[in-house]
Design a protein around this nucleic acid. Structure first.
Lengths: 216, 216, 216, 216
DNA sequence: GATGAATGAGGATTCATTCAT
DNA sequence: TATGAATGAATCCTCATTCAT
């Protein structure tokens, strides 16, 4: 699953780097064609997955000639990578809006998860694309997860400094939270939306607040 | 990620069903050849992933002729499915040994996670294969996750009845735990083994026991 | 189309020669197995055609092991040839019964066609198998047609000597009659049986008797 | 055998429909390549038959890369069908030229058969290809025969109205004529050309004119 | 820049036939 | 004889990528 997507409250650090190849469009017309191709690729990869997707189909969706694809991208892999970057930043942007430093630490996690669930439910293709990254471009996948965990870890650390969470926070705690978020997203946002995101987020949050032992 | 692998304390309910086609071997020799193919497929899929894997390579690893593959399997997809089934049951079997009903509920979860981390670290290919299932055979993938969550949920429910965990347990709690387990496995068993499984399990378990708030 | 089938009033000259290979069964049990294979082959070739037919499927229909096939036949081609021979003689046998030298020449042709239409309607697979021979074993196909035409030609010649038909009969007349018979068989016996064989035969016969010009 | 080929005096009703797939060439260059492939396929299918023919061989004959085949055709079946259509119309076109409505009914049949024999002798591959259709694409085969018989039937019917042939003409008469034509073509045009087409046609025509009974 | 034809390596799958038991 | 496992040549088809216009 997408690291970024697992932490919508991410900061704009960005992995994005559209300067991958020297094929940047030089005219307005070119810029539009390139964008049409990216949009088409998003649909194609989202619906059929990386391996089933074909360049031919992408150009057909984009309404361009097959050859035009290679005017803007070096390969199927490259457009995929460009797309993941692009989508990651969209996710991050969506998250950034919901960040407010005045929130108490665990409260912030709750809001972040709620937003994430909403976003994942609305953009399932994005979810799938970034997720499949694990098998198409493992390095990117790993980077994303690690930076996401890092952000969560930093937030928790800050909370610890403020005395809002336990002082013994370490990286593993961040991974545990990220895993919870991702799986709840898969189950309650992508596969079905039978439950209200806020409720699901509350369940996860209650674990963070007090664990699963019976209340005294 | 593999549902099964996320719950090594699984019971033997089994999704396994090796009777897929009518190509079951009828002699001992045949049984051995089929097994060689499955073993070879495990290595091939584990190392190169489903799409990069080739039948030719599988038969070469197995030391059989190309045609022999089709004596026992109908297609690349079929052997993949057979393999996932097979591996799932191995995971489940490995888990079953570690089940002891005399354990207190959350203690059982800790033991399960420890075993899972150990298993995942030793069998990284299995992890990858079952994980890639999401994009190769989504139905199986989903089934596995759901049945794994179901088992966790049932265990928690039993714990609730015994008064060992909160009474308001629901399905979402199981998904949260499964997500934690899977991601900790990815990070601390598959990607690196820099930390002791027992320690990692303890960190996760401490969340389940008391959450992340500062201890009073 | 089958030459033989086009002339059911054939004599037993026979192309049949089951001594093709040295694989003749030596025991009663062997004879039965060989026959089961021939029967199965007739169904298989009749239903699926030569190229779609498979040895595996033939042995399955016959209820024998795959390897047993090669105990009695050298190859797929050989069993096909053996089958065509076998079927040809069946056709010829069926025809022979209907031969009566006391019939007037054109009357004999009418009876022969009637019988042929009846036979073809009842044994469509035979029709197909012998017919496909053109593309599987052209030499046999050609031989069959030629010998069939030859028999018709001889009958007509005899009729000519008796003054029952024109004196200028030549080979081409026999081919013309054979063509008529075969196509009427295809249309009114194999593809549909909407018309009574005797009626169809009468129509063809009326052409032979007086042509198509208006009656004075 | 090809219905069309059995009736060279066909009208341009056409079964032809080259718009089968969306792979129509969009440039002149493409049109030429497609044509080269069709020509090569005609030779290949004509010489080796449908099942022995290979795509590789077709592209080698055409002087194109293997992949180019799939730029214009979806499969071996499809090019075969396209070819049959193409050849059928060639046959029909060849026939059309020889149609003259001022001919007396049976005279027209004689001319048609003569032309057919000439055509079949010159284009034996066409004969074989269309003929093999019975086992490759039965539906097309049947359609062709039926429409050919229909055309003959209509011509005879018109002759009947003019009083040039018997009034009791029915479909079966057309099938009988078609069968005669096809078999005479096989024997005297495809297998050998030992006899003059006009002579052979005259023999068939004499049957139509007066049957086989001795002249009074 | 845009177009679409050409390329060919690569991979899955079939199945007649052989052979050890 | 019967059995069924093993073999591998043969073939269709896909599709990312290149290139001429």
């Amino acid at each position: 699953m997408a690291p970024a997507s697992a932490d919508p409250a991410a900061d704009p650090v960005a992995v994005t780097s559209d300067k991958i190849s020297d094929k940047a469009p030089r005219t307005e017309r070119g810029r539009k064609t390139r964008q049409k191709l990216l949009d088409a690729a998003a649909s194609e990869f989202g619906e059929r997955g990386f391996h089933e997707a074909s360049i031919t189909s992408i150009t057909q969706r984009a309404g361009t000639a097959l050859g035009s694809f290679y005017t803007y991208f070096d390969s199927k892999d490259e457009i995929y990578r460009a797309l993941v970057d692009h989508l990651s930043s969209r996710v991050r942007e969506a998250a950034r809006e919901s960040r407010r430093s005045d929130l108490e630490a665990l409260e912030a996690e709750r809001v972040a998860l709620t937003n994430f669930l909403n976003f994942a439910g609305t953009h399932k293709e994005i979810y799938r694309i970034i997720d499949e990254c694990e098998f198409v471009d493992p390095a990117t996948f790993r980077t994303h997860y690690e930076s996401t965990a890092q952000r969560i870890f930093e937030r928790l650390g800050e909370g610890a400094r403020k005395g809002e969470v336990r002082a013994d926070i370490e990286e593993a705690h961040a991974w545990a939270i990220m895993g919870m978020n991702v799986f709840l997203g898969l189950r309650y946002a992508v596969w079905s939306q039978e439950r209200d995101p806020a409720e699901v987020a509350e369940i996860a949050n209650s674990i963070l607040r007090g664990g699963l032992l019976p209340r005294p």
